[in-house]
Amino acid sequence: MTDIGRDRILQRLHKAAAQAPDLPPTACLPIAAYDRAQRLERLTTLMSAMRTQIEVTTARDWLDRLREILKNRNLRSLLYSPETDLGRELKAAWPTDPQGLPALCTWKGPIEEFKDELFQIDASITTTLGAIAETGAIVLWPDDKEPRLMSLVPPVHIAVLGSDRIYNSFCEIIQAEKWADHMPTNALLISGPSKTADIEMTLAFGVHGPRELIVLIIDET
């Protein structure tokens, strides 16, 4: 049934398309250009306005900063990946008796087996692929090490970003990193914690995804 349907739809479209002239491709719009400091500044301003907590720190201090932020927040567990550099560094520095800090935990098996546990976890920490200054968003390409739901299910999501990975615009990162040649299973732009305004246009955070998004920007300049 659908094969015939497919052919009929395409036939109708081809017939109509043949009557129209070919149009040239549309020229790209110019890409916004900011310098390094402006990029960091713009990203911080725009994402903070979306209620993201932005913390600019350094490679030496970021773990201290993280511990400070998480201390005494009553979070029981922090999901991390032991297979990333970030995860290894975190693991090495995390106290075995995490007084007032969440205990580290890792993803086990496919989602079907891990689902119940995942929905109980309080917080997660992931890497990022980069960020976009123009619109204010971080970019994630989840993979086998850091699955997609790590940045969605736990109520607090912490993302770590290198300041040298902030691009001017979404268009720039697509072109510069040749996304079209190797799109991953899932690519994500995230600008803040989950939110909705469906009830009387009143903004409320944490409707389905994280209530809080914390971005640690490692800035070595």
Partner: peptide, 10 residues
Amino acid sequence: RITTYFNMIT
């Protein structure tokens, strides 16, 4: 300027 999530599935 952008929504909370832009989700690209390939």
